[in-house]
Design a protein around this nucleic acid. Structure first.
Length: 418
RNA sequence: CGGAGUGUAGUGUAACGGUAGCAUUCGUGCUUUGGGAGCAUGCGAUCCGGGUUCAAAUCCCGGCACUCCGACCA
């Protein structure tokens, strides 16, 4: 893509009403635009990152048997009354609105009811189970106070998968698989080293739920981490009895701030019961379906990546989620051959299937370099008169700052293998 | 939802109750061209509604919005 066609522009200064690093950098670099507190629009750059994250999660979910669908945003009040989650006294962050005929509807703030209600139509036999539907969608929560940029929005983008299993054993087997899939996701988006599975409160159907917590001072959660065992305990369930049960020693635990970038939950029959979600087993007996939920906030994950993987110059995207792999920069000069060469290289790299952001703007080198650092694309390639005279292209890695001068074929090979 | 604070060009900031200024961005022209260049010139703003006053960005009241702390949550 040509940078001149990118609708966003970089800014030297962040907006004064945005304190969080993630939103500050994302706004300055032109990835998102703030609509209001906790509500952000995703500009072309931001959307590209979001789609990369989405693709990684989709791949991991599909590998453990997930089937993608899309549940509606507008939700029927009656469905939520079944599980007693419509009343404002029970769930206080609904966005509710009215139909023309006076009927009340809500904007989905989670998906358990929607799935249980739909699956009721299609599950009747043990042959229909297990089933692992999921979707990516915008979720709405009327937060009393949204904060921390895109880490906690009133509207946010998430993936939610729900497992429908015949019994506890089948549920547990999938639950364990999901942990691995989740770990894979965090590895692939570049947060693997800092993201730990964390024991958290489990609700009425299991002792624990599991969160995935990325360590950073920007986090809102407090966890106690055993770095050797790679296990953490959320402050909310941190007591002597539980530590003993988990085989953890207080001496090995360090208090850390962290961002919850995902969670998995055993739901038991909490929702299958009110929805009368049952199946017939081999003997013709009716059994309640066992459910689990598995969530990842994609927008939060994106914000976490920015919080953790950035430096004083800007964002440092991992290749896996970067909006582009290469930032091709043409250094403007009177020598028209430089531009011709840059155009040619843009075409070649693009034809090789490499994602290139081509800075074709008529700006000075310094501005282009600063913008490039701010936007954070993994590799920067400079086409300049200097390089052309030497017959090389300058390749700079954003993460390390390492610079090398490579001949065209070397450069293309390097880039393809990067 | 409790507490505190703040609303001025696209962005960042100034202005004692008395001419809304500066920087940057943007437009134009010339110069410049490897880390946010220079000169000239131009466009662009007081959150909304009331009130006090000869006069309100400034004081008062109400609303709305935003930020921070707390409570709550992916």
């Amino acid at each position: 893509m040509r940078q001149s066609m990118l609708l966003s522009k970089t800014r030297k200064e962040g907006p004064k009403d945005e304190v969080s690093k993630n939103a500050n950098l994302l706004i300055r670099a032109g990835f998102v635009s703030k609509e209001m507190a906790g509500v952000y629009s995703f500009l072309p750059l931001g959307l590209r990152v979001m789609k990369k994250i989405e693709d990684i999660i989709r791949d991991e979910m599909n590998q453990i048997g997930g089937v993608e669908m899309k549940t509606s945003v507008i939700q029927n009040k009656e469905v939520w009354e079944k599980s007693n989650r419509w009343d404002d006294a029970v769930v206080d962050n609904w966005f509710k609105t009215k139909l023309k005929n006076g009927g009340e509807v809500g904007l989905s703030f989670t998906n358990e009811e929607a799935y249980a209600n739909i699956l009721k139509q299609y599950i009747s036999s043990y042959k229909d189970l297990p089933m692992y539907p999921y979707d990516f969608k915008n979720i709405f929560r009327n937060e009393a106070r949204s904060k921390s940029g895109i880490l906690r929005g009133r509207e946010f983008y998430w993936k939610a998968l729900y497992s429908f299993s015949k019994d506890e054993a089948e549920h547990n087997e999938f639950y364990e698989k999901s942990k691995i899939a989740y770990k894979n996701v965090y590895n692939r988006v570049g947060l693997g080293d800092l993201t730990y599975i964390t024991f958290a409160s489990g609700g009425s159907f299991s002792k624990f739920s599991h969160e995935f917590q990325s360590i950073t001072d920007a986090g809102e959660d407090t966890i106690y981490l055993d770095e050797k065992k790679k296990i953490a305990v959320n402050k909310e369930v941190y007591d002597d009895e539980i530590l003993k049960e988990l085989g953890l020693d207080k001496k090995d635990l360090v208090e850390k701030k962290a961002i919850e970038v995902g969670n998995i939950f055993s739901l038991g029959t909490r929702f299958s019961e009110p929805f009368d979600l049952k199946y017939k087993n081999e003997k013709g007996e009716e059994k309640l379906v066992i459910m689990g939920s598995y969530g990842i906030g994609l927008s939060r994950l994106m914000g976490t990546i920015v919080e953790i993987l950035s430096d004083d110059k800007g964002i440092v995207w991992p290749v896996s989620v970067a909006p582009f792999k290469i930032h091709l920069i043409e250094i403007t000069s009177d020598n028209l051959k430089v531009r011709e060469n840059a155009e040619l290289m843009y075409k070649k790299l693009t034809e090789e299937g490499i994602e290139v952001l081509y800075d074709d703007r008529d700006s000075r080198a310094g501005e282009k370099f600063n913008d490039s650092d701010l936007i954070g694309i993994p590799l920067r390639i400079v086409v300049s008169e200097k390089g052309m005279d030497a017959g090389t292209f300058e390749v700079k890695e954003r993460k390390s700052g390492n610079v090398s001068a490579l001949k065209e074929n070397e450069m293309i090979t390097f880039v393809k293998g990067y």
